[in-house]
Design a protein around this nucleic acid. Structure first.
Lengths: 233, 233
DNA sequence: TGATTTTTAGAGTAATTACTCTAGGAGTCA
DNA sequence: TGACTCCTAGAGTAATTACTCTAAAAATCA
């Protein structure tokens, strides 16, 4: 049986993701759990510590994934790997959604977050570096850095962005998954021009796999008709 | 002399950007202006309408920029043009920072925002389409779409992301400008592999111009080293 | 068992905050 | 002048909300 502390975190996470941290009061969390506010405050000094604890879980989660050894790295494996990362980030999407507020409100959290980003980028550079060594991507140092930053911006913003555009807080798991796949698709778009050898062979297959069939393109590229025209001109 | 209504909007914008909309109360806005809360509420039914009015200003601002005719389009011009867009977005950065909350709280605003994004993407596709027609970028339809989405994600997230990482709310104009230039640099990184002809010739020059000398690697890829900008023009 | 510590309930509070209401000044037009 | 509208002040309020306090149940230990 999970401890009360754990249950508070789990419920908070669910509510934060669904309603947005700003709209979830501590009383609301307690009520959802069927415990008293006093009990909640016995386990967490204040609301901020709940957020901080969730960030800890989030960052541990992500860093663990990033530490995982992987033997010979192919582009396909790497992409699948990124898919896992994005899924983890989606689980804690409330965090990136209100990131600036949290960092503004909690100096210590800000420092931990900064360190976290540094490690993520560092590790990401290693991964891309390995791909380069294997001749899978063809980039110079500068392009590698640019690519890494863009990948991170995309991943860390994707959830919030997509969450803002999707139809009303309908808890549609199928849609969510499709949106995450679209995120990976966009990363593939980032990498595509640099891909060589093995990766190039799998490119179309991978694009097809992650390309959002209907719903996703509908969301971001709605009824944008621009392409038919520019193609023929 | 600007009307009270305008002054309320201006002050709100300033405070929202600096403190975050969440931390700025209506009383606070009134106080900053030296007017009474009652007066504020005479001009705006509630806080949400202030946000909505600011979004209107923001979207009009951006759409006007996007409508601007431009004659023959070079990559250099386009990049300079994007710089203007990003600067406008930076002026209203509070909006993208709390975007999901605003959309969640105001159905009508959500609809307007969705329409806004559609127009922006549409217009962006036209611009990239023109570059393609001129042989400046070499992409197929699918790559064009992918590029467009990534550009938009990058631009609309950049302010919030960077704001979260920069040192404490120091109102450092020089730093801000450097960060915006870095945003353009990242877009250049997105486009670089597709560039041909004229653009390719100006690539290094443009990269040099927008590359943040210290701050780039500093903010996102390391620690901020006191901002020692060596003669940049 | 009794003693002690951990966990819980739940009423309560101080502070905040979005917003209201009334009354009156200030400009305009007759 | 008076009447009418626009604008402003500022006291006040209802509701929310993060958080406290006391006491008791439950678990742990001697």
């Amino acid at each position: 049986m999970t401890s009360t502390k754990e249950r508070i975190l789990n419920t908070s996470l669910t509510l934060f993701n669904r309603e947005g941290e700003r709209n979830v009061t501590t009383n609301h969390i307690a009520e959802a759990l069927g415990i008293s506010p006093g009990n909640l405050y016995y386990h967490f000094r204040n609301k901020g510590t709940i957020v901080a604890a969730l960030f800890e879980r989030y960052s541990q989660n992500l860093l663990a994934l990033l530490e995982a050894p992987q033997g010979p790295l192919t582009w396909t494996i790497k992409t699948h790997y990124f898919e896992g990362l994005l899924a983890s980030m989606w689980q804690y999407r409330f965090f990136h959604r209100d990131l600036t507020h949290f960092l503004h409100a909690d100096q210590a959290l800000a420092a931990r977050y900064q360190a976290f980003v540094e490690v993520v980028l560092e590790r990401g550079l290693v991964i891309y570096g390995e791909l380069r060594s294997s001749g899978i991507i063809d980039v110079d140092d500068e392009q590698l850095q640019g690519l890494m930053v863009n990948t991170w911006v995309l991943m860390s913003s994707w959830a919030a962005l997509v969450h803002g555009l999707r139809p009303d807080a309908a808890a549609d798991e199928a849609l969510d998954e499709s949106l995450m796949r679209h995120g990976i698709y966009q990363i593939i778009c980032l990498e595509e021009p640099f891909l060589r050898g093995e990766a190039r062979e799998h490119l179309e297959e991978m694009k097809a796999r992650y390309r959002a069939v209907d719903t996703t393109s509908a969301l971001l590229l709605g009824h944008v008709p621009g392409l038919d025209r520019t193609g023929s001109e």
